[in-house]
Design a protein around this nucleic acid. Structure first.
Lengths: 241, 241
DNA sequence: CGCTGGTTTGAAGGTCGTCAAGAAGGGTGG
DNA sequence: CCACCCTTCTTGACGACCTTCAAACCAGCG
């Protein structure tokens, strides 16, 4: 068992955790489970389900519309919760599924609430992390509502890169990224064809290249300019105490 | 002092509150303050700010881009928190302002966290409410990403109507709604001109009419069809205990 | 009565979606 | 090792939705 899970590393950025709190976290993550690729964990509308902590691999949260359209809400990375919010609501407001093979820890809703009661300080830390995720969804909303395809795409890759770096992956010059153009389209509110055209633009302008599951960043500075990136919504490393 | 604030009414839908918890809520809302129209309460990037409980009037949460573009995140109504999430993050990830005259209760971040520590059950209830708000933001994201102008507009008005009903306003046949076409545009990710055309469509199809600050619903059923409305993300009235 | 903020409308153009079809990979089985 | 399949990617043509620009209109208000 690794003494430092991705989740623990993330939460310690918020506040130093007491031994008891660390033990509780270890407990919640004691039974990691391997999940195959393209597997749905929770379906929208499902009730009484668990929350999941993603340990490794790629996943995505999404909603489906009647006519088959799909919107991807976000891409959780190692150490991120999935369905935490839905534990409080009676039913899940969205679905989530794995993209690649992944390992996750399942935490029942009841167990989750119990932990919140017993260790409120830990609860606050987890909610701090959840707040950051929420801020990302808001940023995503702005992206889709008020930025064009090129800006959106640039923003997504920049954000993914930064987040990967925050959890310890060296992503300065590029990173592995198993997102197909189809799922990119559903994340960015575009058509597959237009995603393709936009990626070509980014490639031709020598900003980034996405090829066979790998993003290569050619020009980080221009990427940031195109994306109008403002990373203060990701970077809250301060300890408020 | 009204014995039943909008917030209290909302939270009791989640679970029965103990006298101590009710007292704390009354305490948090003991100093309501009147704010003029078009007044910014918190600006994006501001730190060390408070959370606000909206008691009355209309407000909106938004983000600004460098080139002046704006995206409205949501419209809080009576009993809703503003900036609750930002209390946990070091700085606010978005701005919010009043639209009409409004009365709000300001709660300092420290006081808020204190209340969470002292009365965790109350904290959970507040977070339940926050989760519902978050689900609305997600729905908004889907709206902008995967629905066309007519569907988005229909969805927004239907959602506002339902929410107003949930807090006790009779909005079945219509409701007061001080949203200008400009702010509708920024909420829906459209241009002002297109908002105008879309409203005309809704009017000509005799679905809804927005005129001089009032929405009149002509055909609720067709409104729901156009919006593909699925209200289970608003309607979590169950008591989990 | 003129100003201001909001609404309405037309015309022109751009971004993006749809349709369609071919190319390129990656995996499987013969 | 190659043939075959399937998924994913790529590209062109065309059209729709939506934006921008511009101007007129309307209502409230000093």
């Amino acid at each position: 068992m690794s003494s430092e899970s991705a989740l623990v590393r993330k939460l310690t950025a918020f506040s130093k955790l007491a031994p008891q709190e660390l033990k509780c976290l270890a407990d919640l993550q004691s039974q990691p489970r391997k999940i195959g690729r393209q597997t749905e964990l929770v379906h929208e509308g499902q009730s009484g389900h668990s929350a999941f902590i993603l340990q490794d691999g790629w996943a995505y949260c999404y909603k489906l519309l009647r006519n088959g359209r799909r919107q991807v809400i976000n891409f959780p990375l190692s150490g991120d919760f999935m369905g935490l919010r839905s534990v409080l609501l009676r039913t899940s407001d969205h679905s989530f599924a794995t993209l690649t093979e992944a390992t996750v820890s399942e935490v029942s809703g009841a167990r989750m609430l119990e932990a919140f009661h017993e260790l409120p300080r830990l609860g606050i830390a987890i909610l701090w992390a959840a707040s950051r995720d929420e801020a990302m969804v808001v940023e995503h909303l702005v992206d889709i509502g008020r930025r064009d395809a090129l800006e959106r795409m640039a923003h997504l890759f920049l954000e993914l890169g930064k987040r990967l770096q925050l959890i310890g992956y060296p992503a300065e010059a590029g990173f592995e990224c198993p997102l197909t153009q189809e799922i990119l389209a559903d994340a960015l509110g575009l058509s597959i064809v237009h995603v393709n055209r936009t990626l070509r633009q980014l490639r031709e302008r020598e900003i980034i290249t996405l090829k066979s599951g790998t993003v290569v960043i050619h020009d980080l500075e221009r990427l940031g300019e195109v994306a109008e990136f403002d990373n203060h919504y990701l970077d809250h490393s301060s300890d408020p105490e």
